[in-house]
Write a protein that binds this DNA or RNA. Structure first.
Lengths: 200, 200
DNA sequence: GTCTATAACACGATAGAC
DNA sequence: GTCTATCGTGTTATAGAC
């Protein structure tokens, strides 16, 4: 049963290792040992470590996107925002895509960095849509800029991982995202009772 | 003139390299070549790469703290918040302390991670103080939790670096911090004119 | 404290048989 | 496609003279 061919097995293994240890610190040897695929096979499918990394990275990016599309789904915008923000995440493992930005060998290689940039652009777009919807639904003040806020919310998650890893405790990650959610709620427009006197 | 002894020169060089390239990806050879210090001297002062890294890390942490003490300084709390948040930073270089959390060899070594954890705890404390002061000064709603918000604000900066590096553009970093500042301002308590009818 | 020489091992890949 | 063997280089030191 070669349902799981070497090629796919290599990509999956490299994806895991890149999440756990990054690119630079993952050796072809590590991939061979965890996957059980031999040297010859490995270099047959992927001539260089970098080629394998590109495939693995593409896969990690793809893993992220289904959740993002939920941001732009049906239902109350503020509820979607909360659902995405509070979605269960392993704070101590970090983001499999965001992690790549800290690896000098990725950061300095446009080919490796490109999928990361594209992924983040897509996530940003998802955030912008739901934040615009929230403004339109009267759940967020109209003087808040959705484009900017989208970056803020992405940064809270990405930075939350950094705090959690530093303390080896998921607490700061949860505090950071809960905090920004409170802030969003506190930044709701004045209620109808308040607005009537403004003529709105 | 041995004003700058080998030992100090090594620490300074290692500090720079750890900011630029992290720990794992910086070799003793790199340090020797940039500093001009010879092999013998290097291993005389620091028996292992890890020993040098500890000294360099301690130094990088120390570099960060003066700015933090400004958070807890004199003046209007909201002004201090803005000043710290908006302080000039090289978004594409990232945080010399936060960066370490993404290096597997640091993350898995309690001795190397400890200075990072301590630094973040101190920064958090600085944020908590100024946020409490802002609440006390009536600049922030009393139902916002300063402990949580402190994590949120730290995360915005740490995550902002990730976004900026991903896009190779400081824009997202600035958007993220400007966005959270807008959010803080939008989360000010109702004005006196609004409050009178609520009986507060 | 600093020098040069050397060592043991891992990394990233290549060669050529099957 | 997969196997084993090999290669050149870099890493992280250690040894021992000065």
């Amino acid at each position: 049963m070669t349902v799981m061919e070497s090629r796919q097995l290599l990509i999956e293994t490299m994806s895991e290792l890149m999440w756990e240890r990054g690119y630079a610190d993952t050796s072809p040897r590590d991939v061979r040992e965890r996957s059980g695929v031999g040297q010859g096979s490995m270099y047959h499918h992927f001539p260089t470590k970098r080629d394998l990394a590109v495939a693995a990275l593409e896969r990690n990016v793809a893993d992220l996107l289904p959740a993002v599309s939920e941001l732009d789904g049906p239902g109350d915008p503020m509820a979607r925002i909360e659902a995405y923000l509070m979605r269960p995440r392993d704070a101590l493992k970090g983001c499999k895509v965001g992690r790549m930005t800290q690896d000098p060998q990725v950061r300095e290689d446009p080919v490796l960095l490109a999928p990361v940039a594209r992924a983040f652009a897509q996530v940003h777009l998802g955030w912008v849509k739901v934040l615009r919807a929230a403004v339109a639904a009267g759940e967020l003040r109209t003087d808040l800029d959705p484009e900017r806020l989208a970056h803020t919310l992405m940064a809270v998650l990405q930075g939350g991982y950094v705090l959690a890893i530093a303390q080896q405790d998921p607490g700061p990650f949860d505090a950071a995202r809960t905090g920004v959610l409170e802030l969003l709620r506190a930044a709701a427009p004045a209620t109808t009772d308040d607005r009537h006197k403004m003529g709105e």
